[in-house]
Simulated assay, not measured.
Amino acid sequence: MDDPADNAELALLLEVAGTPKPGNVDRHRDLDDLRFEHFLAGAVGAREGLDLAANGAAVGPAFERAIEGMATHGENSQFGALLLVIPLVRAARDDLSQPVAESVVEGTTVADAAAFYRAFEHVDVFVGDPPEDMEPLDVRRGADAIPALEDRGLTLLDVMDRSVPGDDVAREWIRGFERSFTAAERLAAADGPPTDRAATVFLSLLAERPDTLVVKRHGEAVAAEVTERAAELVDRDALETDRAAVETFADELVDRGVNPGTTADLTAAGLFIALEHEAVEI
């Protein structure tokens, strides 16, 4: 596909269709509050925001529009994935490389940050309590926090910087989308259809680093346990897994309500990069 927005929408769809992805919605598993069809509808609903980014709009307004459309059609299905994919789509107008992606986020403004805050008014996003000195900038305040944001002159990149550590989507912004590009390389190296590759690469990412959404919801000990279990199941060099064992692990995490959603966001970003580089074909 030549249109980055097409590839971005497809990446969101392929991510949720990949199975098994332990603890996450996939085409065989729903969560109590999110179903497979929510993700399908969310990807379609986000399309206008993806188009804006592909056509050169600023990152913040494109993200806000994508989230508004996602929330209207598909609940909170892909907030973190879109926060990664939107700047990558914007970068794809020039050359989808880490240096260009870095330049895109470095060019964000206070207005982009304000649009990011307004996006929280469209959807309920699970976030932890901020430090006391950051309470005026709590993203859960939505547009009410924008005056404090403007007083401090914080760009969207500044906001992401203040979210690290503790949020690995924000960490991608600060570290040049390094894990997203790593995911793309692994997707290119893996075998099978894109959905199978997505599931395998998801597990390889989960095996490397505790998922920050799991840390926020369940604590560091549970997140470390999940990562250790994933590491036991995947050979990261060969990108091979014992599928039956992974299926069991996936069902167990869903039953426990343990959802490594940040790792799924990284997988979606990797899928977009791989599709743009024509490293994965349908």
Rank of each mutant, 00 (worst) to 15 (best):
N24F: 00
G18N: 10
D30H: 14
N24H: 04
H38R: 06
E15I: 00
K21F: 09
E37C: 12
P20R: 04
N24A: 10
L13N: 12
L40S: 14
V16R: 06
L12R: 00
G23M: 14
F36D: 01
L12K: 02
G23T: 11
D33G: 03
A17F: 02
G23R: 05
L14T: 05
L13A: 10
H28I: 08
D33S: 11
L12I: 06
H28P: 03
G42V: 02
K21R: 03
F36G: 00
F36N: 03
K21A: 13
L31F: 03
H38Q: 02
K21D: 04
N24C: 15
G18D: 10
E37Q: 11
R29W: 11
T19K: 02
L12D: 06
L12A: 07
D26Y: 00
L34F: 09
A43W: 14
A17S: 13
A41W: 15
A17M: 13
E37M: 12
P22K: 10
P22T: 04
A43D: 14
V25H: 04
V44Q: 14
G23D: 11
N24S: 08
L40Y: 13
F36M: 01
D30A: 10
K21Y: 15
R29C: 03
L34N: 02
F36Q: 00
P20W: 07
L14F: 05
A43F: 10
L12P: 02
F39Q: 01
E37S: 12
L14Q: 10
H28N: 15
R27H: 08
E37D: 15
F39R: 03
N24E: 08
V16P: 05
P22C: 06
N24P: 00
H38L: 00
A43E: 07
L40R: 09
V44M: 14
L14W: 10
E15A: 07
N24V: 09
T19H: 11
D30M: 07
P22L: 06
L31G: 04
G18L: 08
L13C: 04
F39N: 06
